[in-house]
Structures are given as structure tokens and as C-alpha cells.
Nucleic acid binder design. Structure first.
Length: 923
RNA sequence: GCGGCGUUAGCUCAGUUGGUUAGAGCGCAGCGUUGACAUCGCUGAGGUCACUAGUUCGACUCUAGUACGCCGCACCA
């Protein structure tokens, strides 16, 4: 389990070591930690450790508070893309965090059979071998898909493990496994029996390439520059004609009427007359219908119920039949007469030129309109009249609307509530049958003898009505989303009343992108309420899409996709995860940039090295830390550590705040902000300041024995808590470090999430440290500006009030150490040695750094003048506020108090700067 | 047409109940091989928070509108 023990063992064997074996082995151990973190060496080992310890698996335990998430199941034959990486990282963060909080946490993984996508993929695979689906036949084709699924199917799920996803792999599911299939059938039959599923002949979206129907959601509309053709339809009984406008002239072959608006005076007297449909010479009536918009085109519209959804509506209002002139293959049917067999677009050209030849084409105008395309293959969708299965959505939508309105389901961010409600309130019936072979076959049989329609949980062998044996099953399969809609409960064993359902349903949280709110989230809510009688989840955390550096949508076909596994190989999973979640806002898109991953990798390396430093210094005192850990829990501060110095009290106070802040931000799903807070604390406050400050004490060159012990314990304690706070974001490196660190036990993954300890709050220490750090920075600034070599030790003189002097005295060592000061003199204000010095004012403390040789007084004056300008600006703003009657009478007292303090400080600083300027004038 | 989002430093983005000296990362400039880390450290430059009006003592933050960019839904004969 611990790599380093073996390593150090190997080192111990080397000859020539005369010192004590204990010390020697620890030294060897610390020295064995590489200076650069290598995720490739650590991550697989650590993931194996988690798996072998069973940390991700949970059993039902009603004694504990449950926390559950079901994964948005990725396409079983797909591969992991960067969007999955974001989605699953966010889930993993929440899951790891809740697990550390002690909740009985389960994250159920699995995959989706993805009907069309998978079928297309396997078809393409077979096509390479020269085999078509039709040749193979349905049964053997489906067998091929299963084979494919077995071979590549769980690849994507395994890829999630590389990301560190802490799913309960023992609970992995597939939308077409036995249990999920049973759930699908149960749901279908129940809805059928309730009359909420029906079959009918309606106009639907048809993809001529996929040769299947599509739901409205699977059609993507794109604005297209087309033409508006004005065509003359001559009257049958007399001269003249009516002109109709259309963007799809080829559909005129299926026209059954011309409609005009009943309130349109221009056409009032032609309603009821008959026109001769050009080319096909069919006699069709002129009808009155509100749909015709007098403002558009000529105000007269051709009616083609067979190929236009609106016309289909008009048709049913006026009892007109629908004529199908375009077939399922996108070619003209026999009903198109001489055009039969032509592709729909070739036919368009032929129709137009024929109309022109006959003098019936009045004009053609350019026209922008939107054209529907198949979401999967981008072929132009053809509206077709076809017999399909539908779910009646209106009755199901009611409870789904209520559940969100009354807050049983909460969208994060909240604005998506509106998106959801708008859609749900205007929902249309859902076409669920697909003319595919891969998917859940519709559990309906037709009796060839009596025509009975049988929806059944079990495959029937005879017709229950006439007992005839001649029955056949509906050939179609269900929309993939039909089965994913059941995911939150089908994965927990529904329709059985399982313990899992009792314990973990409703799930606590759903994490997904805004692009599938309608496809998936909405439908899960509908199904959950209908079949479980309760919502499928409480919180829906919606994230944005990952875009490329140019802000374009990542696309595999465009080659703009990024393979997350390559990134993981190169930088480590922690880096990718951290890069994806820092600086993001819920619901907003983000851009993926390699330099961000690099930054995250650097951060992982930072924590690795800070820990390396800690191990080197703490390992010899492992026993002391173990005692401390056992006595005090994991450094929650309940113990009284003696010998605490100012920086110790400061960092512990800050730590306590940061714990509270990170927890709060996670609670609010402010993941990006939480990550940033951890990052800043670890890098700036812990590494750049605290670690540097304690070095002299750790090395033994400063402080009492008691204070040195305090330094070790505080260093350890802050590091331990930092690791915990960072673990949900960067699980691997934190666990790796945890395993090396003395005084820890078990896995970090199941350690207790820290609880902020109020008693550690020390505003005084924070303020004092602020002064010391500002003075340090001021000296560093002067050094840098004067080009003092970093190694050179200098002299500094501070002019400080009595109170400030005391603080400086307690932080003298820090200033000396961190600002490279050899001798530090503190005098009362105004008495500091100031000739031949470079100066500054930091928090009211005058800082003088004497320099050798002649100083450039002009330049120094400019420096001071610049600071003076900034101070005066602030002072003026402050003054304006305080002189404002309204401000003083209306603002909150604490705000006024703060403003007064600020004013005083600015005034003080200003006075000091002015005095300094005057002195420089004398020099 | 309806709805939503965005507009903050050269670039990419944070900024949650209105009061901050408006932040970070990257990039840029200067210095640096101090015993965790050059995947590093120190220092610095860089912003009229798109525009206009309003509410308010006070607006990057709230309201309305304008401009530009983006997204969803509906319509599109």
C-alpha cells in the first residue's frame, strides 16, 4: 500500500550508513519523494487502492443519511469527450464531498443504448465488411450490435475511472439490461392501459436517411436562404387564377386545397370555387381558414396535408385527405405521377421549370426560412404522415409542472426553471416509436384474425380475445429517451419495491448540461412522478457546454474536439478536473484551454511539494503527530496546543474561515468559487507565507522547543485540512500525499470533512499578520526597485506607533526572514533615520531602507508622490462620503465606522508621505 | 415574435443578499540556482466594470432602455 516503505527499504540496504536506522530510514524516505509530481505513476495505483478497499460501494443503511446520484448515462458505444469530463467531475466533487461528510453516498453509473447512434455505428462497421443490415436480417443484426456492445460497450465507463470517478461500479447498469428492459415494458403497458399511450396516423418528422420517425426535439432547425415561388392556380370555371406562394414547389403535387383567410376581402368571393392544380390537373377547392395570413405572400396558401404540419391541421379541420407524394426514401411516390421516382430536390427543379414553361410561375423571390435537420445525420427532415406511437403528454405534464413550481425540484441556476416550465406548459405529444432494430421493441402485438391490439408485459402466444395464434409484434422500437426517462428508478430495481428505492429514491442531485433539459430532465420528472409518485431528484445542477478556445462548440466531425484521455495522460486527471471546474459559473459555457490545464498541473505539483516539505520535516516526529491526531481528531483544534505564535494563530484562523467558506460554496453549488478559495488558501497563504514563516522554527534556528512543536503540529494540521478541502477536486494527488504523511490513517477519500472551529477564529491575529505582511511587502518592493540582489541582507528602519511597534516586535523574525533584513530598527513615528533612504508607508508604518551611495532624489520623490496621489484620491473619496449628511444619517453604522477608520488611516498616511516629501526637498 | 445569457486588465474568466484600493490565471516587464517546488520565488505595469437614464446617501452589483455578440423556443405558404 505504501510505496515509500518499499523504496526506503531498498535504500536502507545500501552500505556505509552508520547513523541510527530509524533516522536514516526516514531521511531516505523523504529524499525518495520526487521533486516533481508524476500523476502517471500515482493515479492508477491510487485508483486501484480505492477500488480494492471498496470505498465507492455502499449498501442500504437506513441508519445513515442517504445521498444518491445517477449518472447521465453516456452512449454505450461512444467515447469520453471533454463534456463528459466536466459533467462527471462535477458529480464526483459532490459525491466525494458528501461521502466525506459521512452520508451514505451512492453514485450509480451506467450506459445508454442510444438507438440511432449505435445502430448507425454498427451499420457503418458492417458496411466496411460489405454487409448491409438488410442482408443480415433483424435478428442477426441485433446480435451483431450486442457483440459490438460487449466488446466496446463499457469502454466509456472504464474511461471514467481514469478521471477518478468514484462511482459504485458494482451497481453499473445499462438501459437495455434485463432490469431496465422490464421497467420499460412495465411503463409502456401501464401507460397504454391508462390510455396515455396511443397509436395513430399523424404527420411526424421523418429522416429519409435514418429511415425513422423522430420526435420534435430531435429535429434541429437552421435558417436557410431559399426561394419563395409564386405559382398560378387557374380557376376551373372561368378565366383567371389565384396565386399561391411556397418554398417547396414539389409538394404542390400533393395539394388538396387552396386556403385564404375568411376576413381577407381580396379573396372573399373566391371561397368555394375550384381551381385546377397545375401539372397534375387535380381539381381542388378554395377554402377559408384562419391559418392563411393575409400579410404573407399573396395571402393565399396551398394546402398539402401530406407534407406540412400546419397543412395537416387545416386538412383535418376541413376533412381533406392527405396525399403522400414524397416517400420514406425522400423520393417521389407513385402519387406524384410523372415525377415518381425522382429525388425530392430533383423533382423541385423539374416542377419549377415545367411551371415556368406553362407560364404558371409568376415570380421567384429570395426567402429566408428555417429547415429542419436530423439531429443525428443532419439530413433534411421530411414531414410525413405515418402511423406511430405517441405519449399523451398533457396529463403527465401537470404534476411535472407542479413539482418544480412548488420547489420539490430545484434548478441551479434558477433561471432554467423558466426554460423548463415554458417547454412543459406547451408540451406536445411525444412520438416514441422508431423504425429501428436496436432498442426496446414495442411490447405490442396485433392479432391477424380479430385485429386486437395487445400490450403485454410477457410475450403472448395467442390472442387473448379470439385465442387465435396468428399474432405478430409491432416491428418498431422505442425512442431511447423513453428508457432513460426511467433511469433514476429503473437502476434501483423498479418495478420491484427494493430497499435501494426506499433508501435512495428520490435521488439527491442530478448533474447535467442545459442541452438535455427537455430530452431527459423533463421526461425523468414526468416518469418519476407517474410511476414512483415522487420526484426523481431534488436538485438539478445545470452546467454549460465546454467550448474550444475560439468559443466554438467542440465537435468530433470538425476535429475541434479534445480527447480528455490524452490530456489525462499528459497532465493527470487532477489537472484536467481542476482546470474544468475552476472559474466556472453554473449554467454558463466555458472554454477549454490547454494553458489552464497546465496551471492546474502546476498547482498539483505545488501541493505535492509543500507536502514533500512537510514530510521531510515531520517524519522524524511521526510519533508526536500520531499522538496529536489521536488526541484531537484530525486537528480540529479542540486540543490546547501550547507555544502557538502569531503566524500559527493567524493560519489557523484563516483555515477555520476557509473551511467554512468552501463548505458553504459547495452547499450552494458554487463549485468554481470553492475551488478558487482552496487554491488561493493553499498557494498564497499556506505555501507562500506560512510555510516560509515556519521554516526557521522547523530548522531549529528559531523559537523554543515548545514553539517548534507547535509549528510542526500546525503545519501538519493545516496541510491535512487543506488536503481534505482539495480532495473532491483533486482526488489523486491529495490521496497520494495523505498516504505519505505521518499521522494519517486510512484513506483520505473516507476521512472526515473538516468542520470549521469557531474557537480558532482570531481577528486580532489576522490583522496583526496583515500589518507584518504589508511591511514585508513594502521592504521587498523597495529592494526590487533598487535592484538589491535577493541574497543581500539589508538594513531597515521602521517608524511605528506604539501599538504597531509591539506587533512588529512579535513579527520581527518574519520580516527579517522574508524581506532579507539583517538589522531591523523600530522607532517612534517621525524619528526614523531617513537620510539616504528609500521609503514607503505601509498601513501607517513608515518604512525606510537606507541605501549605499547617492540616492536619486528625483526618482525617490516621484515614488512618494505616486503613493501620495493614490492616497489622496482615496482620501478625497472618503471625505466626500463623510461630509455627506445623507450618508452619515442613512448608511449602516458599521459602514460609517469603517469609512471613518479608512479616512483616518489615509490621512495619517498622507501626512507621513507629505513629511517625507518635504524632507527630500531638503536633502 | 417570445424568452434567456453575455459585454469587467492584452487574452480567458471570477466577483451570491448595493459600501472592496474591482480580483485570478495566462501573457508582459524587471530581478533571482536562499536547504518543498524553475511545473518555482520576489517585484511591477495593466481596468472611465459596453453605453444611457433611473432608484439610492452610495451602483460593477438593482430597474428600464440602447448597442453588439450568443443561445433556446415559436413562426416561417
Amino acid at each position: 500500500m505504501n510505496q515509500n516503505k518499499e523504496d526506503s527499504g531498498a535504500r536502507e540496504a545500501s552500505p556505509g550508513q552508520g547513523t541510527s536506522p530509524d533516522l536514516d530510514s526516514t531521511r531516505a524516505r523523504a529524499g525518495d519523494i520526487p521533486t516533481v509530481y508524476r500523476p502517471r505513476e500515482q493515479e492508477p495505483r491510487i485508483y486501484q487502492y480505492w477500488l480494492s478497499e471498496g470505498f465507492f460501494h455502499s449498501e442500504v443503511d437506513d441508519g445513515r443519511k442517504p445521498f444518491s446520484i445517477v449518472i447521465p448515462p453516456p452512449n454505450v458505444t461512444g467515447s469520453l469527450h471533454i463534456g463528459h469530463a466536466l459533467d462527471n467531475t462535477l458529480q464526483d466533487i459532490m459525491v466525494r464531498w458528501r461521502r466525506m461528510q459521512g452520508l451514505n453516498t451512492v453514485w450509480i453509473p451506467g450506459t445508454d443504448h442510444a438507438g440511432i447512434a449505435t445502430q448507425v455505428k454498427v451499420e457503418a462497421f458492417l458496411a466496411e465488411k460489405g454487409i448491409s443490415r438488410q442482408e443480415l436480417g433483424r435478428e442477426r443484426f441485433v446480435e451483431e450490435v450486442w457483440k459490438w456492445k460487449e466488446k466496446y460497450g463499457s469502454e466509456i465507463i472504464r474511461q471514467l475511472q481514469r478521471l477518478g470517478a468514484s462511482c459504485d461500479w458494482q451497481r453499473e447498469r445499462f438501459t437495455m439490461d434485463e432490469g431496465c428492459s422490464r421497467a420499460v415494458r412495465e411503463v409502456f403497458v401501464r401507460l397504454f392501459e391508462k390510455g396515455l399511450i396511443y397509436r395513430g396516423e399523424y404527420i411526424i418528422n421523418w429522416c429519409p436517411r435514418c429511415k425513422t420517425s423522430l420526435s420534435d426535439l430531435e429535429v434541429e432547425h437552421e435558417d436557410t436562404e431559399g426561394s419563395l415561388y409564386y405559382i398560378r392556380y387557374p380557376f376551373k370555371d372561368g378565366p383567371g387564377y389565384v396565386v399561391v406562394a411556397t418554398t417547396r414547389p414539389e409538394t404542390m403535387l400533393g395539394d388538396v386545397a387552396v386556403a385564404v383567410n375568411p376576413r381577407d376581402d381580396r379573396y372573399r368571393d373566391i371561397v368555394g370555387r375550384t381551381v385546377i392544380l397545375p401539372l397534375v390537373k387535380r381539381e381542388i377547392p378554395v377554402i377559408a381558414d384562419d391559418y392563411a395570413d393575409p400579410e404573407f405572400g399573396t395571402g393565399a396558401v396551398k394546402v398539402t396535408p401530406g407534407h406540412d404540419p400546419n397543412d395537416f391541421e387545416i386538412g383535418s379541420r376541413h376533412n381533406l385527405s392527405a396525399i403522400t407524394v414524397i416517400g420514406e426514401d425522400g423520393r417521389m411516390t407513385g402519387m406524384a405521377g410523372p415525377y415518381a421516382g425522382l429525388d425530392r430536390y430533383d423533382c423541385r427543379e423539374r416542377v419549377v421549370s415545367q411551371l415556368q414553361a406553362e407560364g404558371l410561375l409568376e415570380k421567384v423571390e429570395p426567402h429566408l426560412h428555417s429547415v429542419g435537420h436530423c439531429q443525428r445525420c443532419h439530413t433534411t427532415v421530411e414531414p410525413l404522415v405515418s402511423k406511430q406511437w405517441f405519449v399523451r403528454m398533457k396529463p403527465l405534464a401537470g404534476p411535472a409542472i407542479e413539482a418544480v413550481k412548488d420547489g420539490r425540484i430545484r434548478f441551479i441556476p434558477e433561471r432554467f426553471t423558466k426554460t423548463y416550465l415554458d417547454w412543459m406548459e406547451n408540451v406536445h405529444d411525444w412520438c416514441i416509436s422508431r423504425q429501428l432494430w436496436w432498442g426496446h421493441r414495442i411490447p405490442v402485438w396485433y392479432c391477424d384474425d380479430c385485429g386486437e391490439v395487445i400490450a403485454s408485459r410477457e410475450d403472448p402466444s395467442e390472442c387473448p380475445r379470439c385465442h387465435g395464434g396468428r399474432i405478430h409484434q409491432d416491428p418498431d422500437v422505442l425512442d431511447t429517451w423513453f428508457s432513460s426517462a426511467l433511469w433514476p428508478f429503473s437502476t434501483m430495481g423498479w418495478p420491484d419495491k427494493t430497499l435501494e428505492l426506499q433508501h435512495w429514491y428520490p435521488t439527491s442531485l442530478l448533474v447535467t448540461g442545459y442541452d438535455i433539459i427537455f430530452f431527459w430532465v423533463a421526461r425523468m420528472i414526468v416518469m418519476g412522478l407517474e410511476f414512483m409518485g415522487d420526484v426523481p431528484f431534488r436538485d438539478v445542477y445545470i452546467h454549460g457546454l465546454v467550448r474550444n478556445p475560439e468559443g466554438k462548440k467542440m465537435s468530433k466531425s470538425l476535429g475541434t474536439g479534445v480527447d480528455p484521455l490524452i490530456v489525462v495522460d499528459e497532465y493527470g486527471a487532477d489537472s484536467l478536473r481542476f482546470a474544468l471546474v475552476t472559474g466556472i459559473t453554473p449554467g454558463n459555457d466555458m472554454r477549454y484551454r490547454p494553458d489552464k490545464v497546465e496551471g492546474s498541473r502546476n498547482f498539483a505539483n505545488k501541493i505535492w511539494n509543500a507536502s514533500r516539505f512537510a514530510v521531510m520535516n515531520l517524519e522524524p516526529h511521526a510519533e508526536e503527530l500520531r499522538e496529536h491526531a489521536e488526541g484531537a481528531g484530525h486537528g480540529d483544534g479542540k486540543d490546547g496546543i501550547s507555544g502557538l505564535t502569531l503566524p500559527d494563530r493567524w493560519i489557523r484562523s484563516r483555515m477555520s474561515r476557509v473551511i467554512a467558506e468552501v463548505s458553504q460554496k459547495l452547499e450552494n453549488y458554487d463549485t468554481g468559487e470553492a475551488a478558487r478559495v482552496v487554491y488561493d488558501f493553499i498557494w498564497d497563504e499556506f505555501c507562500d507565507w506560512y510555510v516560509e514563516i515556519v521554516k526557521p522554527r522547523l530548522y531549529g534556528s528559531e523559537g523554543s522547543e515548545e514553539e517548534r512543536r507547535a509549528a510542526r503540529i500546525v503545519l501538519w494540521e493545516v496541510l491535512v485540512n487543506s488536503l481534505k478541502l482539495l480532495h473532491p477536486f483533486m482526488p489523486f494527488v491529495t490521496e497520494a500525499v495523505w498516504q505519505m504523511l505521518p499521522g494519517t490513517s486510512g484513506g483520505l477519500v473516507t476521512s472526515r470533512w473538516p468542520v470549521p472551529d469557531e474557537s480558532l477564529r482570531d481577528p486580532g491575529a489576522e490583522e496583526e499578520m496583515q500589518l507584518i505582511m504589508d511591511v514585508t511587502r513594502a521592504i521587498r518592493n523597495i529592494r526590487a526597485e533598487m535592484n538589491v540582489h535577493p541574497a543581500a541582507r539589508i538594513e531597515a528602519v521602521l517608524g511605528a506607533s506604539e501599538k504597531a511597534s509591539q506587533i512588529i516586535k512579535s513579527g520581527e523574525g518574519i520580516i527579517k526572514h522574508l524581506a532579507g533584513v539583517e538589522t531591523l530598527t523600530v522607532t517612534p513615528p517621525g524619528q526614523a533615520r531617513r537620510h539616504r533612504s528609500i521609503s514607503a508607508v505601509a498601513r501607517g508604518v513608515e518604512v525606510f531602507v537606507p541605501v549605499e551611495g547617492i540616492i536619486d532624489i528625483g526618482r525617490e520623490k516621484e515614488r512618494i508622490a505616486a503613493q501620495l496621489r493614490r492616497t489622496e484620491q482615496e482620501l478625497m473619496a472618503s471625505k466626500r462620503k463623510l461630509e455627506n449628511e445623507a450618508f452619515v444619517s442613512k448608511a449602516k453604522p458599521e459602514v460609517i465606522e469603517k469609512e471613518r477608520a479608512k479616512f483616518k488611516e489615509c490621512e495619517d498616511t498622507r501626512a507621513k508621505l507629505l513629511r517625507r516629501l518635504a524632507e527630500l526637498g531638503e536633502e
